[in-house]
Amino acid sequence: MTNSPTAALSEAGVSIWLDDLSRERLVTGDLERLIAERNVVGVTTNPTIFAAALKSDTYHDHLHELAVAGADVDTAIFDITTDDVRAAADVFRPVYDRTGGVDGRVSIEVAPGLARDTAGTIAEAKALWAKVDRPNALIKIPATVEGLDAITAATAAGISVNITLIFSLDRYRDVIHAYFTGLEQANAAGIDLSTIHSVASFFVSRVDTEIDKRLTAIGTPEALALKSKAGVANARLAYQLFEEEFATERATALLDAGANRQRPLWASTGVKDPALPDTLYVTDLVAAGVVNTMPEKTLEATFDHGVVEGDTVTGAYADAGAVLDALGALGVDYDDVTLTLENEGVDKFIVSWGELIDSVRTALEAAR
């Protein structure tokens, strides 16, 4: 689809990933279709996605086999989700080969209950990496304070990592530095740095949802005029930070040693407010070398009527900074917003994981 908006987005340097995966997509050939027709070059998953996917009948035979084998719930979830990710990685392997390992990536997340457990996260990241056993996998680790050392340890072990649930600029800087430290340790251990890839998932729409709620409560014309501007502004400043950090002497030394840049990834790009353009978090965040992971609804909207006019990020840093400054002047506490969103993000994934556990337990018991 060489003349489509998704093709234009790809030409502008944005890697389009699908924020969804299911056994049904795998068995029907839907992923191959999206690669061919929608310029999709990767997939991300999370506990909510798997909880929804496991409701499909396509898992019946696999669950029956696990039940007969006497598998417990945790073992069954680990087996099913890694099987899906491995199969998707195989589908995307030609993309991985064609792009030199940059794209063709499929992400799988450590159990959300480990978000505050550094040692547990490291252990599960290594277990997932070994089980999927594909070079184009990415292991998702949340960007909690406890996750930072896990990011370093996984990177140092040669594991490619997708750092998720990033909301604040300060935490994003910490994530980049954790990646640098992991690369330095990997280099000292003799690991080929060119084999390690990473993305940093900066969440967008949830920032608007939380800040817009606070602006509505303030209710002044000045406050209401700032609604739905914070998410894009925050992400644009994240890209500025990315440019700055990867131009430092420390980064240059690692890149010269063969390391890859940790690319910014725009996550939470589905529009939550129906009054907003449904492609807002795509067309307003176009920049070279970023990933945009989209739910299918946003992907189809972009393909149908997205207007891609080149870079919409690097020339907008001053305006983005002015938005955050104006929010602060109104009393919107940026640090409180981003901490609230991090905690909510962890909690939501824990709830989804609980639903996944319940679904698999019920299916195993029925199969037995």
Rank of each mutant, 00 (worst) to 15 (best):
A320W: 06
R261W: 12
T252R: 11
K272V: 00
A322D: 13
A322H: 13
A329V: 07
V308F: 04
G289A: 12
E249M: 07
L327D: 02
N234P: 03
A288R: 14
A259N: 10
P277G: 05
L237Y: 03
T248R: 04
D273W: 05
A275F: 02
A235G: 12
P264E: 04
N292F: 00
N260P: 05
L330N: 10
V286I: 12
D273A: 13
R261N: 15
E245P: 01
G321A: 11
L299F: 06
A253G: 03
V290Y: 05
T293Q: 05
D333N: 13
T302H: 01
A247R: 08
D304Q: 10
L265H: 02
F246Q: 06
F246R: 06
L276T: 01
A320T: 03
P274W: 12
L241H: 10
L280S: 01
E309V: 14
R250Q: 14
E245G: 06
D273M: 13
G315I: 10
Q262D: 13
V323L: 03
Y239W: 15
L324D: 02
A259H: 08
P277M: 06
F242W: 15
A301F: 00
T283F: 04
V282Y: 00
A247P: 04
G231I: 08
L285E: 03
Q262G: 07
R250T: 14
E300R: 09
W266P: 07
T312C: 14
Q262H: 11
T293H: 08
P264N: 13
G321W: 08
Q262M: 15
D304S: 14
P277N: 14
A322K: 14
E249L: 10
R250G: 12
V313G: 02
T312W: 02
E249C: 03
K297E: 08
A247H: 08
E300Y: 07
Y317A: 13
V290H: 08
Y334L: 08
L265D: 04
Q240C: 12
T279S: 05
L255H: 08
